[in-house]
Computed example of a mutant assay.
Amino acid sequence: MERWLHGALTLGLAPLLLVQGRWVRRRTQLLPEPPGPRAGVIGQGPVLRLLIVGDSSAAGVGAAHQDEALSGRLTKALARDFTVHWRLQACTGHKLADVRAAVRGLPAEPFDAVVVAVGVNDATGRTRMAHWLHGLQSLVTELKQRHQAQQVILSALPPVHLFPALPQPLRWYLGRCATRLDQAQRRWVAGQPGCEVVGAGFPMDLRYMAHDGFHPGPLAYEAWAGALAERIRARQNRLGSLPQHVE
Score class of each variant (00 low, 15 high):
residue 69 A to G: 07
residue 78 L to K: 01
residue 160 V to Y: 00
residue 83 T to W: 00
residue 55 D to Y: 00
residue 113 A to W: 04
residue 166 L to V: 13
residue 230 E to Q: 11
residue 117 A to C: 13
residue 52 I to F: 01
residue 136 L to M: 14
residue 62 G to Y: 03
residue 26 R to D: 13
residue 88 L to H: 01
residue 226 G to V: 15
residue 143 L to N: 08
residue 58 A to L: 12
residue 154 L to D: 07
residue 109 E to Q: 14
residue 109 E to D: 15
residue 122 D to A: 04
residue 137 Q to L: 07
residue 223 A to Y: 00
residue 7 G to L: 10
residue 244 Q to Y: 01
residue 63 A to N: 05
residue 101 A to R: 15
residue 164 P to M: 10
residue 34 P to R: 07
residue 238 R to I: 08
residue 170 L to C: 05
residue 91 C to A: 12
residue 43 G to S: 09
residue 31 L to H: 04
residue 172 W to V: 11
residue 159 P to G: 07
residue 106 L to G: 00
residue 107 P to A: 06
residue 12 G to L: 15
residue 169 P to M: 06
residue 80 R to G: 04
residue 210 A to M: 09
residue 139 L to A: 06
residue 140 V to H: 02
residue 184 A to R: 09
residue 222 E to C: 03
residue 46 P to T: 14
residue 21 G to C: 09
residue 164 P to H: 05
residue 128 R to V: 12
residue 98 D to I: 07
residue 228 L to G: 06
residue 194 G to Y: 00
residue 82 F to N: 01
residue 115 V to D: 02
residue 223 A to V: 10
residue 211 H to Y: 09
residue 148 Q to G: 02
residue 207 R to N: 12
residue 208 Y to H: 14
residue 230 E to P: 01
residue 95 K to T: 13
residue 9 L to M: 15
residue 128 R to C: 08
residue 105 G to K: 00
residue 122 D to G: 02
residue 75 T to A: 01
residue 18 L to V: 12
residue 20 Q to R: 11
residue 52 I to Q: 02
residue 144 K to V: 15
residue 163 F to C: 12
residue 239 L to R: 12
residue 198 V to L: 06
residue 199 G to D: 14
residue 97 A to R: 01
residue 246 V to S: 01
residue 46 P to R: 06
residue 196 E to K: 10
residue 149 A to S: 13
residue 222 E to W: 00
residue 127 T to S: 05
residue 123 A to C: 04
residue 87 R to V: 11
residue 12 G to M: 14
residue 190 A to G: 10
residue 66 Q to M: 08
residue 38 R to H: 14
residue 196 E to Y: 00
residue 61 V to L: 09
residue 175 G to K: 12
residue 135 G to E: 11
residue 32 P to W: 01
residue 208 Y to E: 08
residue 126 R to H: 08
residue 160 V to S: 01
residue 12 G to D: 03
residue 106 L to P: 02
residue 110 P to I: 13
residue 183 Q to I: 13
residue 21 G to A: 10
residue 172 W to A: 15
residue 90 A to T: 10
residue 177 C to E: 15
residue 25 R to Y: 02
residue 88 L to A: 01
residue 213 G to Q: 04
residue 10 T to Y: 04
residue 54 G to Y: 00
residue 137 Q to R: 12
residue 130 A to S: 12
residue 125 G to W: 01
residue 164 P to G: 10
residue 40 G to L: 09
residue 114 V to K: 05
residue 151 Q to P: 01
residue 222 E to K: 07
residue 147 H to T: 14
residue 6 H to G: 04
residue 126 R to Q: 11
residue 206 L to G: 05
residue 216 P to Y: 03
residue 160 V to P: 01
residue 10 T to K: 07
residue 41 V to N: 02
residue 70 L to E: 06
residue 4 W to D: 14
residue 146 R to A: 13
residue 69 A to V: 11
residue 202 F to L: 11
residue 205 D to K: 09
residue 18 L to S: 13
residue 138 S to F: 00
residue 25 R to E: 14
residue 134 H to L: 14
residue 209 M to Q: 11
residue 93 G to D: 10
residue 179 T to N: 06
residue 219 L to V: 05
residue 171 R to A: 07
residue 91 C to H: 14
residue 74 L to V: 08
residue 88 L to S: 02
residue 117 A to L: 12
residue 220 A to Q: 03
residue 76 K to A: 12
residue 233 R to M: 05
residue 206 L to C: 09
residue 27 R to T: 15
residue 184 A to N: 06
residue 173 Y to A: 13
residue 9 L to I: 11
residue 92 T to S: 15
residue 136 L to W: 11
